[in-house]
Design a protein around this nucleic acid. Sequence first.
DNA 1: ATGACGAAATTTTTTCGA
Length: 256
Amino acid sequence: MKIATWNVNSLKVRLEQVLYWLEVSNCDVLALQELKLDNDNFPKNIFIEKGYHVIFNGQKTYNGVAIISRYPILDPEYDIPNYDDIQKRVIAGTINGIRIICAYVVNGENVNSDKYIYKLNWLDQFKRYNENNLKVTDRLIVLGDYNIAPEDRDVYNPIEWKDKVLCSIPERKHFKELLELGLYDSFRLFNQNNQQYTWWDYRNFAFKRKLGLRIDHILISESIKKIATECIIDTVPRNNERPSDHTPVVLTITTY
DNA sequence: ATGACGAAATTTTTTCGA
């Protein structure tokens, strides 16, 4: 079973790329972020006609998340419970007995902004949510755009990015605390190399020059770790015409 | 150089993302 995350930066613009990638990647579950459209404009029928199950939590212009699946999606949940957040950043469902949480973590703009405060508060709530989910299931996958580069090796120029948003110590502490709950950064179970990025700025030929950050992640619980066989970053879609600035991350697990 | 590139609404300019 293949489970992937992809920040598409407008599903309207990227719909054909998403449909094509679903076919060629042989992916079973795809978590999408930054739909940038409301629920009324979500192209639900296009996915259903192709045999997918789909749940979505959209918002006009900003944010918006969805899960596309070849298998039925049970117990859908929208947003973080008991957290009054107007922004649509979380959606969850159970697929083949695995609880799947798709998240679009706050960007934070810069470390002196109100949005950064919101990011840190949001991450507090997200931690509580994951802690509670781990109390009720040991089969958990938490994937999405975390907007955090966990370590210096996840950054093309750690000196330039030191203490900047996406790399600051408080953000990295939040990421580490998620791992301390009993989650694993699945990509790092299989790949220890530098320059393994999931996002590249549109400007200044950043992708061609390999100037990126690893900010999209697939975190997995202990039970999923035991059946995980591979986690890769698929950089192919970043070469598309009108690409998203993010590219998919794909986890493979064995299921019986 | 509070810029660049790309998307969307606020639309021929501004706001936001990373």
